[in-house]
Amino acid sequence: MPSILVLDLGGCEGCIASIMNSYPKLEKKYDLYISYLGNLNLDREFDFAIVSGPVSLVSSEKIDLLKKVRENSKILVAYGSCASVGGIFLYSKGQNCRFASIGKVVDIDYSIPGCPPASRTIINFLNCIEKKGGRFLELFKALTKYQKLSGFDLIDDVVLTGLCVGCGACTLSCPTEALQLVDGVPDLIVEKCIRCGTCIVRCPKFTQNILR
């Protein structure tokens, strides 16, 4: 069975908890290595490494750990908003507290935002990999180029550039209801945006653009 490492580098662990919920389904097809089960072992090779949480730039231990995970895994997935697009940790300040999405430190294969991604996401993702394809897989691959995505980017890159057609994908996707349609045009309630990136990843215009 393919092996999967699930590791949180310093996030809220909501992503791990959400993966744990799918454990009964996952264990049928995969060997899961995860600290919540007590079998975390970083000294072996993995077919998949699902890494959540941002990487602390002041902790050389975490940076080294991440690099080691990269070396030991065939496919490295940045899972959840913090790992993939930085999330709220982009706002962290102070000398002993600097974070970045993991793509800034190592090469990643897929980037899946979401705060946290619902349990089913991991299963469908692995299914897509098994079936080798699908456009959404390409999308998650293309997202690895981005280290920051949020409602702000949606407004700047899609709405203000005049590409928005007003389909409503972003408003329906936002977990904090930070996006509202004003006269058919999305507008961001800035104080509600937690930079999870779901809105822009769902935007048909943005995805059409980055996949071409």
Binding site: V58, I88, S92, G94, F99, E191, K192, C193, I194
Partner: peptide, 20 residues
């Protein structure tokens, strides 16, 4: 890693603070 949430919300609108 130490995560300094007090600094993340400093200067922000209370609504953001709540979600963060």
């Amino acid at each position: 890693p130490f995560r300094g949430f007090d600094n993340i919300v400093k200067g922000k609108n209370p609504i953001f603070a709540l979600y963060a």
